[in-house]
Design a binder for these strands. Structure first.
Length: 424
RNA sequence: GGAGGUAUACCCAAGUCUGGCUGAAGGGGUCGGUCUUGAAAACCGAAAGGGGUGUCAAAGCCCGCGGGGGUUCGAAUCCCUCUACCUCCUCCA
């Protein structure tokens, strides 16, 4: 959510900045009208309330003097009715205004490349050598199925499409990966470990920006009005919702492991096979709360933390800076890290690292105070996958495959796999 | 699931029965000082919540006593409702 005062005073400029976002901006047009109405009503209603307070205070005194207070009370009753009516109007306007504010996307940072869609994203850097295979590479779903470590068919039977069973060494590999990632970020990058709830309420999902606009992407538990989390970003960012942190608390860095649940509405037909696009997957997520002046430095660091995992796994990747049209609704700036997937002969997203500036903080009301007496200010929030585990499995299976269909276990994972060197 | 209880500011805590000088006491803590080699203690003093409106800035005004409604001229106080927490019982991984 943007700052209303800032929006009011810079409407033209902000509209211009949002134009390249490829988001629906129709709500922006309603802002000025609603904003003016709101403030007009507030002035009117407060004037009346002030009068009511003043007179109400006098009534007991008049009574004491033995005066007839009935006429005054009658008058105030009318004032009260008036207030109730105006308040009702105000409530309706504020509700509409709130919806408008929640539907306006974040402003892109000046360093974000202007562009329409993913074609215009800019490659920032590349790491690792793409390995040459002297045999025909197999897709990870064949490798996994043949080795008996992934079972898509039975998952389809038990649940439906876009689900999977990890089995045997596949399950072990998944577990090794999240243990390795959690350990590494906690021990070397200074993050505090967290295991969050997988189910959150509407307020939390609004706080991080998935609601109200993207309701169809989430799994909803109607009876409770709860949602399955699409990412640990939601519970972990909202962990400090409605709080005022002290300056010493910042930066606050958490690394969280969780399951993630996405309906993948609108992705029918895309990546229908394999682990790339599932309704449920596991992810290690990095979340930071920082002072505003530190957030862009923090974005670089956080992206580096995610990259480090790929480097240790020796998986080739590139870092893309998302252009204005591909930024998503909530980010001011976003890097996608894309890992090399041999069977597809291309790079695929494995991590997304974003700086939201105060966009989420304002929605979720996450603030901090400088010193003991500072005015509360909004923190800046950031997050990034460190990494998506399912897609890491894809990359490992495909990049580490051998001609006989066996998989070499990346060295850093071997301690987590009981010393195993090859899955065969 | 059954019975009862609690929710006031950074923390503790009065006020709620009996609505109105409560402009939300009083502590603790915080900050400054006295004393001390330094600290603690004691004493003296100070500042102190959040949001909105307004304005160049301010003053002022409005709203805040878990959230949301309502009654009333007037609500921390009365009514309804929701939520969280606590105690006991029941059930349960």
């Amino acid at each position: 959510m943007l700052d209303m005062k800032y929006l009011r005073n810079n409407l033209q400029e902000i509209t211009k900045k949002l134009e390249h976002r490829g988001e629906d901006l129709s709500d922006l047009d309603r802002f000025s009208d609603l904003d003016e109405k709101r403030r007009g009503l507030i002035v009117e209603t407060e004037k009346l309330k002030s009068k009511r307070n003043e007179v109400s205070k006098k009534i007991p005194l008049l009574k004491k003097e033995g005066k007839d207070v009935q006429p005054v009370i009658a008058e105030m009753r009318e004032v009260g009715d008036n207030i109730a009516e105006l308040d009702q109007q105000l409530r309706e306007i504020e509700e509409q205004l709130q919806q408008v504010m929640l539907s306006i996307p974040n402003i892109p940072h000046e360093s974000v490349p202007v562009g329409e869609d993913e074609e215009d994203n800019v490659e920032v850097r590349k790491w690792g050598e793409i390995s040459e295979f002297d045999f025909e590479v197999k897709p990870h779903w064949d490798l996994g199925t043949d080795l008996g470590i992934l079972d898509f068919e039975r998952a389809a039977k038990v649940t439906g499409s876009r689900f999977v069973f990890y089995k045997g060494l596949g399950a072990r590999l998944e577990r090794a990966l999240w243990n390795f990632m959690m350990d590494y970020h906690a021990e070397h990058h200074g993050y505090e470990e967290m295991l969050p709830p997988y189910i959150v309420n509407r307020t939390s999902l609004t706080g991080t920006g998935q609601l109200p606009k993207f309701a169809e992407d989430a799994f909803h538990i109607e009876e409770w009005d709860y949602y399955l989390i699409p990412t640990a970003e939601v519970p972990v960012t909202n962990y400090h919702g409605q709080e005022i942190l002290s300056e010493e608390d910042l930066p606050q860095k958490y690394v969280a492991y969780s399951g993630c649940f996405r309906s993948e509405a609108g992705s029918a037909g895309r990546d229908t096979r394999g682990l790339i696009r599932q309704h449920q997957f596991n992810k290690v997520e990095l979340v930071q709360f920082v002072k505003p002046e530190d957030s862009y430095e923090a974005l670089e660091q956080l992206t580096g933390h995610a990259e480090k995992i790929l480097q240790l796994l020796k998986l080739p990747y590139r870092v893309m800076s998302m252009c204005t049209g591909d930024l998503g609704f909530t980010a001011s700036k976003k890097y996608d890290i894309e890992v090399w997937v041999p069977n597809q002969n291309t790079y695929r997203e494995i991590s997304s690292c974003s700086n939201f500036e105060d966009f989420q903080a304002r929605r979720a009301s996450i603030r901090f105070r400088r010193g003991a007496k500072g005015k509360p200010e909004f923190v800046h929030t950031l997050n990034g996958s460190g990494l998506a585990i399912g897609r890491t499995i894809v990359a490992i299976l495909e990049n580490y495959q051998q001609e006989d269909g066996s998989i070499v276990v990346p060295e850093v994972l071997r301690p987590y796999m009981g010393g195993l060197k090859v899955i065969k």
